[in-house]
Design a protein around this nucleic acid. Structure first.
Length: 205
DNA sequence: TATATGATGCACT
DNA sequence: GTGCATCATATAC
């Protein structure tokens, strides 16, 4: 089985992100073909978890290229990133959505009631379908023994890639959401449909 | 089908 | 204490 190497990930994250589309990630019996990702550019990126420096939570973002960064959010969800750039540089690509290629039964079991199309449609759903959690934080995917693998996409020329603003980042005064650092495969139904960065409705007092 | 809202726990300030 | 790189559900059309 071929895996993407550390060399592949040790490049500018904006270059890597679109190339990850169509690649197949496998973990715990489920394989997913990536259809949507987002780039986070370490120290230069106000939307990155690493923008304010290294903390215990984001430590694995600073690891060598190809290291997994899995974090817990909204009190109930995990999201999965692959670290890019050399050790010490906290760039990463968030796996936002994909199409389940193998292990449908396991994925369905983990996701509960869900259509096949929704199994990995959205970062937290993807993580749940693949059983990614705290234990996978810090895994080094280029290692042949690593439980998680990322395989290159099959040869078929460059797929139609589209770009747009990232999802879910909002805040006062111009933030990271305005960078077109979200990438997806044109025409894929398994791309997350979540609406971009609408300001959260103010709560009535 | 589309939109609105609550749930939920942890990291960070 | 506050705010999340979200999702499932309820309600309205």
């Amino acid at each position: 089985m071929t895996r993407l190497s550390e060399e592949f990930f040790d490049r500018p994250v904006l270059q890597i992100a679109p190339e990850l589309l169509g690649c197949v990630v496998t973990h715990a019996g489920v394989s997913v073909r990536l259809t949507e990702v987002e780039a986070y550019d370490g120290a230069n990126d106000p939307g990155s978890h690493a923008f304010r420096g290294r903390t215990p939570r984001n430590a694995s973002m600073f690891g060598p290229a190809g290291t997994l960064y899995v974090y817990f959010t909204y009190g109930m969800h995990f999201c999965c990133n692959i670290g890019c750039g050399p050790e010490g540089i906290a760039s990463a690509v968030l796996l936002r959505a994909g199409e389940v290629m193998a292990g449908h039964d396991l994925a369905r079991q983990r996701r509960g009631r869900s259509t096949d199309r929704d199994l990995a449609r959205g970062p937290a759903r993807l993580a749940q379908a693949m059983a990614l959690g705290r234990d996978q934080d810090g895994l080094y995917t280029p290692d042949p023994d690593c439980a998680m693998s990322v395989e290159p996409r099959s040869q078929q020329g460059r797929p139609a890639v589209r770009t747009g603003p990232r999802v879910g980042l909002s805040g006062p005064g111009g933030n990271g959401a305005t960078y077109p650092w979200r990438f997806w495969l044109d025409g894929e139904t398994s791309v997350s449909a979540y609406r971009p960065a609408k300001p959260r409705r103010p709560r009535a007092t």
